[in-house]
Amino acid sequence: MASSSQIAADPADVTSGFRGAMRRLASGVAIVVTRGDGALVGMAATSITSLTMDPPALLLCINQSAGIHPCLSSGCPITVNLLSRHQRDVSAAFGGAVPREKRFEVGRWENDGHGLPMLDGAQANLSCTIDSMMPFGTHSIVVARVEAVRLSESVEPLIYQDGAYL
């Protein structure tokens, strides 16, 4: 059995401990895309989960300091592209390694019904509309209704944990 450390109660220790705990949580990587001021905007995200099956909906947590955040609002269309293991370069590009105006040059993209890009070869592409947003701390909790889904034949997700890909 693994040993455990002392429980943190001091707020600074809880924050540090929480950060360490979340680094241990493995997550799939997705690219969230929308349009803002006439240009495409996208970001890499790991804080995405299913919310309900009826209606089909996702929950996304987006940092309010993220470049995409000002472009998001109720009624806004977005695509959520769940990355495949071979798409580390796309994740890196949308994670900040490539300037915003050049990010969509990485990977092959095609438009969904809203005219937003969907990444070819992703595990899944979800065309959504934002239903609601709620601020919480440094982030906004975004509820997005899923309107269309495209699935890949293979199941080989890109997984991120403790600052690295698995």
Rank of each mutant, 00 (worst) to 15 (best):
R145C: 08
I7F: 15
I68Y: 05
A66D: 11
R19Y: 08
V14Y: 09
A122Q: 06
L25N: 04
G95P: 01
E153T: 11
F94R: 02
R103H: 09
P135W: 03
L116M: 03
D120F: 08
L40F: 14
M133A: 06
P55N: 02
T129E: 11
A97C: 06
M134R: 14
P77E: 05
L40Q: 06
A97H: 13
R23T: 10
S65Y: 05
P55L: 06
A44Q: 01
D131K: 12
R150Q: 12
I78W: 04
A144V: 07
A21C: 12
S152I: 01
M53A: 14
Y160N: 03
V98Q: 02
A2L: 11
S127E: 10
L119A: 01
T46N: 15
G107D: 02
V41K: 15
Y160G: 00
S84F: 10
G137T: 06
T15Q: 15
E147K: 00
C61M: 11
A92M: 13
F136H: 14
A57R: 07
V32I: 15
F136I: 11
L119K: 03
I7M: 12
P99M: 02
P99I: 04
H86A: 15
S84E: 08
G115F: 08
A66Y: 00
E147D: 10
G20L: 07
C76D: 09
C128W: 04
E105D: 14
S5Y: 13
A12K: 11
S27I: 07
I7E: 13
R103V: 08
A144Y: 01
G17W: 02
A12I: 09
Q64C: 08
E105Q: 15
D10W: 04
D10T: 07
T34H: 01
I141H: 04
Y160R: 04
V155S: 12
T34Y: 04
E110H: 14
T49Y: 04
S152L: 03
V14Q: 12
G67A: 14
L83S: 11
L83K: 07
T138P: 06
L119N: 07
D131A: 14
